[in-house]
Every structure is written in structure tokens, then in C-alpha cells.
Amino acid sequence: MHGEFKVPGGKLVVVDLDVVDGALANVRLAGDFFLEPDSALDAINAAINGLSAESDAATIAAAVRSGLPSDALLLGFSPEAVATTVRRALQKATDWRDYEWQLIQGPPLEPVVQMAVDQVLAEEVGAGRRKPTLRIWEWDRPAVVLGSFQSVKNEVDLENAAKYGMDVVRRVSGGGAMFMEAGTVITYSIYAPTDLVQGMSFADSYAFLDEWVISALKSLGIGASYVPLNDITSPTGKIGGAAQKRLGTGAVLHHVTMSYDMDGDRMVEVLRIGREKISDKGVVSANKRVDPLRSQTGLPREEIIERMVETFRTLYGLTPSEITPEESARADELVKEKFGTQEWLYRVP
């Protein structure tokens, strides 16, 4: 069995192994990482050999760590990365380039329809009716998007939301509230088979699925990096956040919102967030715009999106697509049955 894992921001880790009578055997670790002393490579292989093929990532990482000599130095990878690679080998995980990726850009949609389209496209990928897809969202009106488990009354000032004409909707993934106004954010979704993140913890999969956008931002001169669990940041502050949902249909839905040029004052009027949360969002005073992408690049929003798309295309391949009439019809059904209902919005009052 063969497994590969490119550590986000690090090096490639490769493992070849056999399974004999339910145990790992003939483990051979390789990659472009740095490891001292040389004997540590054999120590890692020996630590993994003999483990049960049912071992979880934590067990494998612990075995690697305990088997390393005390003076071992690992650069560009970690025991956890080795464990992820072993699990990917055992579960026959796929890689980005194993798929034909498609791109959907727009069109602008109502916030509640956006929520439904996100679920529909993920389900279609899981069912094999749609190829893995990158979608760049566009908004036709302002909205607050709540995480699946957030309380409406704790997160949103409904009176101020109404004053500014902002819809309040709830998505299927967890995480925090997103403040959306047309042209002020960049939002994208990745719909992929779960095989792409097979063997990874949620924490590892977040960074793995967003490594391409970190590369795109760096190519624009932004010192972007990923901060666990789900933040994209830079030396001057947070840029955006990710959320994820793994569907039982065999797909992973991963979406990210990054701030281009948001009105910080309006955001704190509409969202019920304390000082701690405000600092996390980069708002430090009144009359402050949350504009990391605009201020750090000086570029129009459209040019940043173009660079993101080109980066993804260069790394993994990308062909144009669009939401099909069947997918649109299913999204309309989900709006009526789920996302547009008071029961869904107030599932956590």
C-alpha cells in the first residue's frame, strides 16, 4: 500500500507498507523532508512495523514519537504527519490531481439559496453526479450566516440586521457567524469526495484543503499562514475563517470567507460580539474597516479572485462549469423544506 501527504507549509511525506495478518509490515518512509540523525529513519520504520492495521492516527503518532532517538530533529514534517500518511495508505486516500476539478463562479444568489446550493453541490459530488468543484460565491444582498450550532439571539442583533436590510440564515457547517455584504468579502466552497481527506483529522484537513489559497495570497505579497483550527491570517491580522461538513453521502464540504473590505462598525452593530471576538476579527476601534486583502494588496477584489482561480488551476487543473437546472431546482426545494424555514433558522434559538 502507498500513501502520500504534503504537509501544509511543509514537506512531502511518503509511506509504502504491507499488511500481514492484520499488522503493518515492511514500512518504508520517504519524502523531501529533513531528518537528523540518519538512523532516525530506521527508527521510525521500526516503530510502525508491527502496529495493528486498525491503529488510529494518535496511536501511530505516539509510536513514532516514542521510537525516535532523543536527539532526533524533524524539519518539514512531524510524527502526526507520518501517522496521517500511514492512514491514507491504509484507506487508499486520493490526491488533488486524481480528479477533474470544475469551477463555478457566481451567479449572485439570495443568501438562503446560497445555503441550499452548498448542500446540493456537495451531495451531487458525493453521489458521483458532479465532478469535484471549486465555487466562488457572489452575494445579491447582505446577510449574516450563522454556524449550524449557534444561537440566533446570542449572535445577532435582529433589529440592527433589519435596519441594514441583512438576511439572517443558517448553514450546515459549524463555526462562527459570517458578516456578508456584496463586494466586501471573498467566499469559496470546495466540494470533494471524502477520499481526498481520508486518514486526516479535521484539523489537518482544514489546512490541507486551504493550502492552495495560502499559496495564492503569498503570490500577491501577503504573508499568509494557517492558524489551527480554521483561521487564515497574516502578520497584520486575521484574513478569514473556514468551516467544514462531512456528509454521509461521501463528500466533504469546505468553505471559507475572507474579508476584502468590510464595514467594521456595521459588523459590531449587527453581530453580538464582545471585545475578545472583536480583536479576533481585526476591529480595534470605531470607524474601522476590516480590509486585510484590499489594504495588503492594493488590488481590486476581482483581481484577487482571478489570482486564486489561476493558482488552483495551475496546481490541480480546472475547467468551467455552472449550476445545472436540476441542481438549481433541488436547491429551491431545500429552501422550502429546510433553509428557508423558521424551524431551521431557530433550531438553536
Rank of each mutant, 00 (worst) to 15 (best):
G3F: 00
E4S: 13
E4R: 12
V7S: 00
K11P: 03
L12E: 05
V13P: 01
V14Q: 14
L17V: 10
D21Y: 09
N26Y: 01
G31Y: 02
F34A: 05
E36I: 08
P37I: 10
P37R: 10
I44S: 01
N45D: 15
G50R: 05
S52Q: 02
S52A: 07
A57I: 10
T59R: 07
I60F: 04
I60N: 00
I60Y: 02
G67S: 14
S70T: 15
S70N: 09
S70I: 10
S70V: 13
A72E: 04
L73G: 09
L73T: 12
A81R: 00
V82N: 03
A83T: 04
T84D: 01
V86D: 00
D95M: 12
D95F: 10
Y99R: 07
E100K: 15
W101H: 08
G106C: 03
G106P: 00
P107Q: 07
P108C: 08
P111S: 08
V112Y: 11
A116T: 14
Q119R: 12
E123S: 09
G126K: 02
R129M: 11
R129T: 12
K131G: 12
I136S: 02
I136D: 01
E138D: 13
V145Y: 08
S148V: 09
S151H: 05
K153S: 13
E155A: 08
D157G: 10
L158A: 10
L158K: 13
K163I: 12
K163R: 13
M166C: 08
G174L: 02
M178V: 15
F179Q: 05
G183P: 03
T184H: 03
I190L: 14
Y191G: 06
D195M: 15
S205H: 03
S205Q: 02
Y206G: 00
D210P: 12
D210V: 10
E211Y: 15
L217H: 06
L220A: 04
S225W: 15
S225T: 15
D231S: 07
D231C: 05
I232G: 06
T233G: 04
S234N: 05
S234K: 09
S234F: 11
T236I: 12
G237P: 04
G237S: 02
G241F: 02
G248Y: 11
T249P: 01
T249W: 00
L253Y: 14
L253H: 07
L253M: 09
H254A: 11
H254Y: 11
T257S: 12
S259W: 01
Y260E: 01
M262F: 13
D263T: 08
D265I: 03
R266H: 07
V268F: 13
K281H: 15
V284E: 08
S285W: 13
K288Y: 14
L293T: 06
L293H: 05
S295H: 07
T297N: 00
T297Q: 01
E303D: 14
E306Q: 13
R313K: 14
L315V: 10
G317L: 09
E322T: 14
I323W: 06
I323D: 00
E327K: 00
A331S: 15
E333V: 12
G340D: 08
Y346C: 05
R347A: 13
